[in-house]
Amino acid sequence: MSQQIPTSEIRANIFAFISVKKNGMTTALDIQGLRKTYDNGFTALKGIDLRVEQGDFFALLGANGAGKSTTIGIASSLVNKTDGKVSIFGYDLDTQREQAKAQIGLVPQEFNFNIFEPVVEIVVNQGGYYGIPRAEAFARAEVLLKQLGLWDKARDQARNLSGGMKRRLMIARSLIHQPRLLILDEPTAGVDIEIRRSMWEFLRKLNAEGTTIILTTHYLEEAESLCRNIGIIDRGELIENTSMKKLLNRLDTESYVFDLASPVTALPATSNLCHFTLQDPTTLEVVFHKEHYSLNKVFAFLNEHGVIVNSMRNKTNRLEQLFMDLVENNKQ
């Protein structure tokens, strides 16, 4: 017996189909003129336009209170917008709310599960809210909890988990309905480096399998390491929206710190394209112009003067420096 498909569903799918662009790519998140003024009069968003393409790993950066969480809150229906238009994979959040919501998985900044419920119940119940039958939701929860190293805690109350486990529980919960767009609001805050790295690997794999990911973070090396495109919000405005590569290319200088094999008392002056500073007799800082100088030239110079380098590192995170520059320029 054939099953009747509701007219509203057909209409929604047609709209979603129309949103597929000519090159075959779909826009995962399309935000136009988004404004938000809270009841207390504070304007958190001043008309943001943002587009995240399907398959992207997108970083949304900004200082505390810049408007990142408000943007995410509106996209995930937890915050009412004042004005503007939001669509998710072509589904309009105002007119096709159910279809739009079904596309999104959200990992919020704060722990927001019932701490007295068993871990597996939290994940399975979330599946229920998406209409996934309990047996199927349980099977999916088992897979996710195993992938995230939480299966041995499945029957424990959530309050007994460590901070890192709680973060992973929220990731498992957000993935139970296999969303096409995953939004993570500072997912690695307060997580130790080992777990952070394993979460990065998990997210990379998820993205490689086709899930579009939007990430906010205060760890800028995290954004630089994971994301292909980047948006920067400052005081309710989107001040940058470009690819990570293009953004990083804007830096015209590079800074490194060298650990030297033996003490050095002084180095001869170089040109104004490359500058050395001895922080102490075995630590040397070098700053050079990318376009006119290179690390090869730096090493050649040091070899010439008998200076042996044991190890080296970036002086500051490159993205951090750019981020600070952009925010500073926006103030002026």
Binding site: L78, K101, N112, N125, Y129, R173
Partner: peptide, 18 residues
């Protein structure tokens, strides 16, 4: 109110459950 206080009311609000 407990769901609001702990924030887990969001589990339902983000979902397509009417």
């Amino acid at each position: 109110y407990g769901s609001k206080f702990q924030g887990n009311i969001a589990e339902m609000l983000v979902s397509p459950t009417p």
